[in-house]
Simulated scan of single mutants.
Amino acid sequence: MNEIIEIGDVPWTLSDIANSYTEFKHVYSQRPIVDNAGGMKAPHAFACWFMLKQLQPGLIIESGVWKGQGTWLIEQACPDAELVCLDINLRRLQYRSSNARYIEKDFSLVNFSEYDKANSLCFFDDHQNALTRLQQMKWKGFNAAMFEDNYPKRRGDCYSLKKMFGGDGFALETAEQDSAQTAGYIEPNTTHREELYQALALYYEFPPLFKEPMTRWGDSWDNTHYPTKPPVFAANVEDELRDEALHYTWMCYLKLKAA
């Protein structure tokens, strides 16, 4: 399925996104980690900051902290939110917030019963199976999430929502595509797509800031293989953050239907 999926409506417009970019660049220029290799770069840092600034959840669960830049960015967007940061290895932290609670466990192993989830959001940047994460967050009482690692067909290291909507299944790029012995292998199917449509009240992929002719993988960035919304800014716009454009991976925001 080579199409752009959108379910429900978000409380912002493309003009709102474009008009917020100057403010974001000022915020981003003050980031504590200049070289955030392995973590979010400008396209998703902006998406994270913008969407959280619009949504203003009271509780944010950050799953996958890496060096800590995402935590800092979340604080800039939602300074009054309660923040819980999860990672199975917190020794890589370069920025540690004095306002966040840190837990060195996987999301699946944390008991969230003490938290008020009425206005909450899970931010997943942990390269895990997105279907499993959706099931876990629903079981734990959450209904809104953002997924940073929303890779398209044949790309990335996890089973993403974009792959589910495409019916693509999952196998690591370096492994035999037809080997059911591959770790995390999921055969192509339409069942997960149908279940997503049944489960989701909202699904929104944040547009890229800029779109280059070629992808990070060296092939054509076209809508046949990589269905993508039009970029926020035109191809002829010069910008100092444009060199990070290829770090875009279709970051998305979603809400589950009420039970």
Rank of each mutant, 00 (worst) to 15 (best):
N2I: 01
E3S: 12
I4H: 04
I5S: 10
E6D: 10
E6A: 10
G8W: 11
G8A: 10
D9L: 10
D9T: 13
P11V: 08
D16F: 13
D16L: 13
A18N: 14
S20R: 04
F24Q: 11
K25W: 12
V27K: 12
S29N: 11
S29M: 10
S29I: 09
Q30N: 14
R31W: 12
I33E: 10
D35P: 05
N36R: 08
N36V: 06
N36G: 07
A37C: 11
M40A: 08
K41T: 03
K41F: 14
A42N: 04
P43G: 06
A45N: 09
A45F: 05
A45D: 10
A45P: 03
A47P: 04
F50L: 10
M51T: 09
K53E: 00
Q56N: 03
P57G: 02
P57W: 02
G58T: 07
W66L: 15
L73R: 03
E75D: 01
Q76W: 02
Q76R: 09
C78M: 00
C78A: 01
P79M: 01
A81Q: 00
E82Q: 15
E82R: 11
V84D: 04
C85T: 07
L86S: 05
I88V: 15
N89G: 05
R91P: 00
R92D: 14
S98L: 05
S98Y: 02
N99W: 01
A100W: 01
R101L: 14
R101Y: 02
R101H: 09
Y102Q: 04
I103E: 04
I103Y: 07
D106P: 06
D106Y: 08
L109Q: 15
E114C: 12
Y115V: 06
F123H: 12
F123M: 05
D125N: 06
Q128P: 00
N129E: 06
T132E: 15
R133L: 14
R133N: 10
Q136Y: 03
W139N: 14
G141S: 06
F142L: 11
N143R: 14
A144G: 03
F147D: 01
N150R: 06
N150T: 08
L161N: 05
K162P: 00
D168C: 06
F170H: 07
F170G: 05
A171C: 13
L172F: 15
A175M: 08
Q177L: 12
D178F: 15
T182Q: 13
E194F: 04
E195P: 02
L196Y: 09
Y197A: 06
Y197H: 15
Y197P: 05
Q198I: 01
A199Q: 14
A199W: 14
A201C: 02
Y203N: 09
Y204W: 15
F206A: 07
F206G: 03
F210G: 09
K211G: 03
K211W: 06
E212Q: 12
E212H: 06
W217A: 02
G218Q: 01
D222P: 02
T224D: 08
K229P: 07
F233Y: 10
E240N: 11
E240P: 11
L241C: 11
D243G: 04
E244Y: 15
H247V: 04
H247G: 01
Y248V: 02
T249G: 01
C252R: 06
Y253M: 05
Y253K: 03
L256T: 06
L256F: 08
